[in-house]
């Protein structure tokens, strides 16, 4: 028998009720598939009085083609993203990213919303209650020291979701609903550079669906992540790249986003110079170096940060070369 803290489980069937319950219970947490949340509950990282399960909400389950693009409900499972033909054709790196999350069983019930809102990770944080207590907890949770950077007052836990970078390169937007209604924001604005509180969601707010723009549909893209094992592992570093070519094989548009090397999914800036040019060795080196420069992995995994930085650049270069070939 596993030890579980006592909590109340709510299973609303519509968004309004979910928000209402969440607002009424300040300590409540949303849960969808539970692949990450239940692990954290079991470890005492989360000690919710109430869990609001979102998976009974029926209008968040679909992948729908709309005039200006594609909508993916937050409850859509990673497996359905992985297997969806429209996504495979029009937004290939998103299907690839979904298929690289943990393992196939996790993908069966892990959701889009859950993966986008995934808690940040750190080897001093994702441990048992006994472990964290024995280590005086940490800045992110109940403690006052960051064991990664003990002199600082910042949390460097890494955002490790696979979907976010793959959606960011397609300039995805999300529908956020909350007590004061619904708003559509760029996915990028869901995140901020703070491992302790990396999501910008307000009280009671949840991610309802993702919009992928029609304008970028069909752009070639790739997602790849470095990890020690071929399955189950979170990314040590992940990179998504979208690259559209025009006349004479010149770059018409390019976007690169990273995961697991910062407290938030990172869009690589400074790539404008590549537009209208060809990707030769120098340009590919430029991409590699830009990615390395903008990734800031810390000692949040068992694998050395310098490696994660090296490898994320190398992967970006390789994927760019592949897409420009």
């Amino acid at each position: 028998m596993e030890f579980m803290p006592n909590f109340k489980l709510y299973r609303p069937d519509n968004v309004d009720d979910a928000i209402k319950i969440k607002t009424e219970h300040a300590e409540a947490r949303y849960v969808a598939g539970g692949t990450d949340m239940i692990v954290n509950v079991r470890r005492g990282i989360e000690q919710p009085q109430s869990l609001v399960d979102l998976t009974s909400i029926s209008n968040m389950n679909d992948i729908t083609e709309v005039d200006d693009g594609l909508q993916i409900g937050a409850n859509v499972t990673l497996r359905n993203v992985r297997e969806n033909q429209i996504i495979q054709q029009n937004y290939p790196c998103i299907a690839e990213a979904a298929g690289s999350v943990a393992g196939p069983t996790h993908q069966q019930y892990g959701t889009v919303g859950g993966n986008l809102c995934l808690d940040t990770r750190c080897l001093f944080y994702n441990q048992s209650e006994w472990w964290r207590q024995s280590n005086d907890y940490c800045l992110k949770e109940r403690g006052d020291t960051c064991h990664v950077a003990p002199s600082g007052k910042r949390c460097f836990a890494a955002f490790s979701g696979d979907l976010a970078p793959s959606m960011l390169v397609y300039e995805a937007e999300i529908n956020v609903v909350g007590p004061s209604g619904s708003r559509r924001i760029p996915l990028l604005e869901l995140y901020r550079d703070d491992g302790m509180a990396h999501l910008t969601l307000g009280p009671g707010e949840l991610v309802e669906r993702v919009h992928l723009p029609m304008a970028l549909a069909g752009d070639p893209s790739r997602y790849e992540k470095a990890r020690i094992r071929g399955s189950i592992d979170f990314p040590l570093a992940g990179v998504a790249i979208r690259l559209r070519k025009g006349k004479g094989n010149a770059v018409e548009d390019v976007a690169i986003a990273l995961t697991a090397v910062n407290p938030y999914p990172k869009i690589i800036s400074g790539l404008q110079g590549l537009i209208d040019g060809n990707l030769g060795e120098d340009e590919l080196d430029f991409i590699r170096d830009a990615v390395r420069k903008q990734s800031k992995p810390m000692r949040t995994t068992t694998v050395a940060p310098w490696y994660r930085r090296r490898v994320v650049g190398a992967l970006a270069r390789r994927l760019a070369a592949e897409l420009s070939a």
Binding site: E2, I38, V39, D53, R79, G103, T105, H106, Q108, I232
Partner: peptide
């Protein structure tokens, strides 16, 4: 929790970890 797969069962035909699934769900 979710790391070994020993608890895999089918829920509506789909393999799922029984150790990360709340019975009430």
């Amino acid at each position: 929790g979710g790391e070994c797969g020993c608890c895999t069962v089918l829920i509506d035909n789909a393999p799922q970890h029984a150790c990360l699934t709340l019975a009430a769900k």
